[in-house]
Design a protein around this nucleic acid. Sequence first.
DNA 1: TCTCGATGCTAGCACCGCTAGACAATAGAG
DNA 2: CTCTATTGTCTAGCGGTGCTAGCATCGAGA
Lengths: 192, 192
Amino acid sequence: MSVQERKERERAGRERLIVATARELAEEQGWDAVTTRRLAERIEYSQPVLYSHFRGKREIIGAVALDGAAEMAVALRAASSAADGPRARVAALARAYLDYAVRNPAVYDAMFRLDGGLAFAREDTPAPLKDAFAALLETLGEVAGDGVHPGLFTETFWAALHGLATLTRSGRLPPEHTDVRVDLLVDRLAAL
Amino acid sequence: MSVQERKERERAGRERLIVATARELAEEQGWDAVTTRRLAERIEYSQPVLYSHFRGKREIIGAVALDGAAEMAVALRAASSAADGPRARVAALARAYLDYAVRNPAVYDAMFRLDGGLAFAREDTPAPLKDAFAALLETLGEVAGDGVHPGLFTETFWAALHGLATLTRSGRLPPEHTDVRVDLLVDRLAAL
DNA sequence: TCTCGATGCTAGCACCGCTAGACAATAGAG
DNA sequence: CTCTATTGTCTAGCGGTGCTAGCATCGAGA
């Protein structure tokens, strides 16, 4: 019986290794460089091993996305709770969000740009994704304003942040004055 | 001399055919399905012909993006000018933008999600891109509010729309209540 | 010690973007 | 009208991709 448990542990460890290595590789050289061959070589196993853990590359992206969501939720809550007053909390949250996107571009892509086969905004949405959204909601919900649904407000604010993050990183918005744009968003969108 | 002209015309015609066919194929089956082989087959030429017009697939995406930008600029100006008053103009503009993204998802991706090798927000930015941004600016600039740079305001508003468009289409935001989110954006962000 | 199932490997599929080099069509010279 | 030179297009192939069939090896339990 203990043999089986050891095997399961080893298997779980290898799965974590795959996900961590995929993330590393993606952050180093971009997701296009994360090929099954390169990934297999880095973990020192053959390609088919990857397929005994994940259905395919998509699921690996999904796994990285879930890790990232949990991480981001922590970062968002930390930033928000370190600030005093609604205005400061919202501003800190927004900055933390964009900061995470800049510091972890590949993970951000896995979460919000690439197809990781994950369900969003549904009952069967994985817990880490729900929790990351909850982290946004906790701070943004209190500045939604009268008669505005907190969830819808959070979604809208999130979309704006996402637009800034993606357009800036792809070079479609100039990198300067990002803070001005964020301030604009915070000052106008939040009902303070 | 006239022979040369005829050849140039034919060449230009074929180039338009390539771009139009790439766009068709992308709208029908997504950009992943736009392979050089399939594209070559549809235009009834061999693959290398594509490379005598474009450096590679990226440039073809860029060409589709430029067509789309010109088209979108027209749509935005039409929507805006058909509305009375700043509030209505901004709302019409926002709806037209999202409407274009929904109706032409592949073109939208070519413009704002994929890498078409185009320069954004610079002096050497292609005219159609500049003009599409100008179309946004014409309407949004007048509601930027005192002391807010019209360009920066337009960028921020655009980013918010882009976020809504991409998150909704990728299933990360539920498709319902899009109009509520847009109204929120218009009412709060614009200084009316 | 032997058997048998689990596990990881090699090899290969169909497809990708892209290109070298052979070949055919055609414009211009004589 | 013929010949040559150039232009244009094609076939074939390179190294890569995600993914999988089927074989070999290893180790647990009898």
